[in-house]
């Protein structure tokens, strides 16, 4: 087992190398440390939310509400700031609120036994809705500089953003917890077989409560970083980030079925997506086209490792396969032809 996942991480490393070489060849601006460090700040909130997501997905669950929790806690921060609170007190309350959001998710999932997809789909709307209820059409702005430094500041004398340091420290802690503690082993056990691990004495409910609370807390922390980076908050802050977080986690080799995955893999995947996006930005690829590339990367990352296995089966090449292959190819070609033909006509007509 261990060997297979080692291989996955090497694959990610190889992809990172390939991407870097391609980007460097295509854009002279890619390898500048200033540029790379500046671009890193676009991914730190995602990275912070990714860390507990790895725990959750390893246990075979999911959390769709992370970006909404981020929005709610950042909006609470803004609301309290507008009401004249001290910024650090407001931030502490916002972190607490985030943890409570996670606790509620965990309680519904662990205590009532509800599917995590359903619960967090509901709280996805609910928490974002509360963010709108708090701030309405108002923005909170004018945070003190000491606070905005969290998102905008750099280590004195260097170009290294504080947020990057924060992420690295957190990532190391999360890696150690996952690899070196009983808690970490329990997570894999639950993901592999929840019923069996419960019978062998793993406190399944308590662990689920803990990881969802942790996820809420980290999302709130990401909310603080994002609000500091923006220097302001609106209730729609960070919406849609949950899909990026999940994409990166899964691309990092954390199996959605549970029981499999490492923190190193997920962090490498964050780096891979980061440099891919930045590279595509440098080449001025349109955002929607970037979406196609990320979507394809996600699917191929799971398809490709299986290819070797298929080819090993000798009867793949048998005559009986011709019909379905032919039919599928025919449909694909017909669709492709129609797509490009009608697109050409349409664009010519404009």
């Amino acid at each position: 087992m261990a060997k297979r996942f080692l291989r996955w991480e090497w694959l990610l490393v190889a992809l990172i190398v390939v991407m870097s070489v391609v980007n460097t060849r295509l854009s002279p601006f890619f390898l500048e440390p200033t540029n790379l460090l500046r671009a890193s700040s676009d991914f730190m909130e995602i990275g912070i939310m990714m860390l507990p997501m790895v725990f959750i997905i390893i246990t075979g669950n999911i959390d769709l509400s992370v970006a909404s929790t981020l929005g709610l806690s950042a909006s609470l921060l803004g609301y309290l700031h507008n009401a004249g609170w001290n910024i650090w007190l407001a931030a502490a309350m916002a972190l607490l609120a985030g943890a409570l959001c996670g606790l509620l998710n965990g309680a519904l999932i662990a205590r009532l036994g509800l599917p995590s997809l359903v619960v967090t789909l509901g709280t996805f709307s609910f928490y974002r809705g509360l963010a709108y209820a708090l701030l309405g059409d108002q923005a909170a702005r004018g945070y003190p500089e000491a606070f905005t430094l969290i998102g905008q500041g750099r280590l004195p004398g260097t170009r290294v953003p504080y947020a990057l340091l924060l992420f690295i420290v957190l990532a190391v802690i999360f890696t150690l917890v996952l690899r070196g503690t009983r808690f970490g082993r329990y997570l894999y056990a639950i993901g592999n077989n929840e019923a069996a691990s419960r019978y062998s004495g793993v406190p399944v409910r308590r662990i689920k409560l803990m990881i969802y609370t942790l996820s809420g807390l980290m999302s709130a922390l990401a909310g603080m970083v994002l609000a500091a980076r923006f220097g302001s908050t609106r209730p729609d802050i960070g919406s849609g980030l949950e899909l990026t977080v999940i994409t990166i986690t899964v691309l990092g080799g954390v199996s959605i079925a549970g029981g499999v995955g490492t923190m190193v893999g997920a962090s490498l995947s964050l780096l891979l997506i980061g440099i891919t996006r930045f590279g595509m930005g440098l080449m001025n690829l349109q955002g929607q086209v970037q979406g196609i590339a990320i979507g394809a990367l996600l699917i191929l990352s799971i398809l490709l490792p299986q290819v070797g296995g298929w080819l090993a089966k000798r009867h793949v090449w048998g005559r009986a396969t011709l019909l379905p292959v032919g039919a599928a190819l025919l449909v694909a070609v017909a669709f492709g032809w129609f797509f490009f033909w009608s697109r050409g006509l349409m664009l010519a007509a404009q």
């Binding site: 080449m283 009986a320 396969t321």
Partner: peptide, 28 residues
């Protein structure tokens, strides 16, 4: 049979897509 045939098809398209991706940045 169904399975393997379609797998072969997937393989072919995968390679095609990969080739297209490889060419994309330069072609765009």
């Amino acid at each position: 049979m169904f399975t393997n045939g379609v797998r072969l098809f997937l393989l072919v398209t995968t390679v095609a897509v990969l080739a297209a991706c490889g060419g994309a940045p330069a072609a765009a």
